[in-house]
Design a protein around this nucleic acid. Structure first.
Lengths: 215, 215
DNA sequence: CGTGCGGGTTTGTGATCACAAATACGGAAT
DNA sequence: ATTCCGTATTTGTGATCACAAACCCGCACG
């Protein structure tokens, strides 16, 4: 491998590979069932098989990728049961995160959420599924970050990761025409300091996403 | 490496290392802050650094081990905030698992839970902290398996894994003298088909564990 | 007695290689 | 034309190695 420009000395090679693949999967840039090879990943990121293998194994451990008995790695094709379960986990944890974020939510946060939500409208207008998924997750993450609960947030992101390829398959051609109504409901509840309302709004937002995935 | 007896062809080397370390951590056989080295693990399991590294990386990804900036790996020393958060996650997910298991719980399952609970009494009598933790987790896992929710169960086990070394530190000298009362309450609620009672019992059982961890 | 400093040692990282299993492909037989 | 089989290729696994950074320990200096 002739010298790369600069491998960014602060992060190790496997971490760059891991992060690159992770955002690609979470944002829905890959369809379910897509296969990945060690040598292919290595060549793409300009590293040898060793860091590529570590990145893939980590993603498999997190459920972002599935590994066949022969060791082949691919994005997972989820069953309906598995999807329902992951949606139930989203509800449980995200409702709790929103609830914990509520007392800490200042005006600046609410305005930021509105800005992000507007960006979501752009993605719908431009029929950009990857941008839609990314912006939608950013909306949720921005709120949940205020909960100051890193372990819960990490667990939620793991769930998002597992749902990434499936969400992409769903939003492949973005049929949606208007913004998700429950985002507005979440913002209203935040502004009013209405915890039961916020819990219901989050719950409904996730449920609606689930209905699109299964219906 | 002169030929090992037989490396058990069905499971790969890194998987044996992973499983060995995982149960060791989850069952509380390691104290917080205990360091692990690649060459040490490799020598202990009779493998080279490569599978040892993959096993450690996977455990780090699952939060069972923590990695310093320099790449050193050790069992984590959890802050009070982190412990509270993990306990909250246990409550959220385990209450849901118990609730889903309730309608499927037959008599045979309830009897098995009683048997395990009796074994828990033995561990208390013999002042065996590792056995106590292992049997306690077996009690919970036996119930949750009935929920038919593999993703939720996996997530709960990840939380147990993260709490392993901390629980060991707590139960180091097992001060407890009698069985946890809420296990009996769970069994009664299961027998009565009382879902609110079961949810409360699980919640209380986890809370009581948390109180011991923090108080 | 405390505090830097220096070198030897330990440790993680990533590349490369040999190997076996799985896969893909092409030709031959029906 | 289709199916089956054998070979060539692809692919994951684990061992080994070179290297640099981190760590540890003791000595000297303040």
């Amino acid at each position: 491998m002739l010298s790369q420009p600069r491998p960014d000395p602060v992060t190790s090679a496997h971490d760059r590979v891991y992060r690159g693949l992770r955002t690609r999967i979470m944002h829905g840039e890959m369809l379910p069932g897509q296969a990945l090879t060690l040598r292919g990943i290595g060549k793409e990121f300009g590293v040898s098989m060793t860091p590529a293998r570590e990145a893939l194994r980590r993603l498999v451990a997190e459920g972002a990728l599935s590994m066949s008995a022969s060791g082949r790695v691919a994005t997972p094709e989820l069953s309906s049961d598995r999807i329902e379960e992951l949606a139930a986990l989203r509800m449980l944890i995200e409702v709790e995160l929103a609830s914990r974020a509520l007392p800490r939510a200042h005006m600046a946060l609410i305005e930021r959420l509105q800005t992000i939500n507007a960006g979501l409208g752009d993605m719908i207008a431009r029929q950009n599924p990857v941008g839609y998924i990314r912006t939608n997750l950013e909306f949720h993450r921005t709120l949940y970050l205020r909960a100051q609960a890193p372990a819960m947030l990490a667990m939620t992101e793991t769930v998002w990761l597992q749902l990434g390829p499936t969400m992409r398959q769903l939003y492949g051609r973005l049929r949606r025409k208007e913004l998700p109504q429950y985002h507005r409901m979440m913002i209203s509840a935040l502004r009013a300091g209405d915890e039961p309302g916020l819990r219901l709004a989050v719950r409904s937002d996730v449920t609606q996403g689930l209905k699109m995935l299964l219906g």
